[in-house]
């Protein structure tokens, strides 16, 4: 059976294996399942990057109509990823630091690290530098929802705080309490 790639409505190129029914089944063979999990992890992360999604929940596999439908379901072969299988994949991703349970101490919802906090830190610093806002105090809202769309648009505060923390370690940022919440001031890469 010839499997082929498929482009979704959102313009995402699905891998050919997405149209193979066994891909949606949790395999009892550990070696086989390892490949399945890896492929799924990559698919989830790249789709998250494509759609700028940060969270995925087990519920997304249970109910139809979520923003993940395009990869969790394949109506052409009448297959869908079962919640139990997704839960297993997510736990594997957390174990490999590709995601983190957010909020912590539960396993139903994860924050996806399609960029690691360190990578986000670099992206953030680059954006601040490129927009000439060094040494300026920026509130979190100004970062996550800037008037001109940026790579950081829509980034969850949790992830943003982690990225700033990474920068703070190297002396390139400082968290400052401001009147309407929290803010941060960024410095040039002096710490390096």
């Amino acid at each position: 059976m010839a499997l082929s790639t498929h482009t979704t409505r959102s313009g995402f190129l699905l891998p050919s294996i997405h149209s193979a029914p066994p891909f949606f089944t949790q395999q009892p063979n550990p070696n086989t399942q390892k490949i399945v999990t890896e492929t799924w992890s990559r698919l989830i992360l790249s789709y998250a990057r494509h759609r700028n999604l940060f969270f995925i929940r087990v519920e997304d596999a249970e109910t139809q109509g979520s923003e993940w439908d395009e990869i969790l379901r394949n109506d052409r072969i009448k297959r869908r990823l079962l919640p139990s299988h997704l839960s297993y994949i997510l736990s594997e991703m957390v174990a490999k630091n590709q995601a983190v349970y957010e909020p912590p101490k539960q396993t139903r919802s994860v924050l996806l690290y399609w960029r690691l906090p360190e990578e986000w830190a670099e992206v953030l610093h680059q954006w601040v530098t490129s927009t000439g806002q060094l040494t300026t105090i920026l509130t979190f809202y100004e970062i996550t929802d800037p008037p001109v769309p940026s790579p950081l648009t829509g980034i969850p505060v949790v992830l943003l705080r982690k990225a700033i923390a990474v920068l703070a370690k190297t002396g390139r940022a400082q968290i400052i309490a401001v009147a309407d919440g929290e803010g941060a001031r960024f410095f040039a890469g002096t710490g390096r």
Partner: peptide, 12 residues
């Protein structure tokens, strides 16, 4: 089908 599958989906 997974044995020697190479990713052919969206490239980051």
């Amino acid at each position: 089908i997974f044995e020697d599958y190479v990713w052919d989906g969206q490239q980051d």
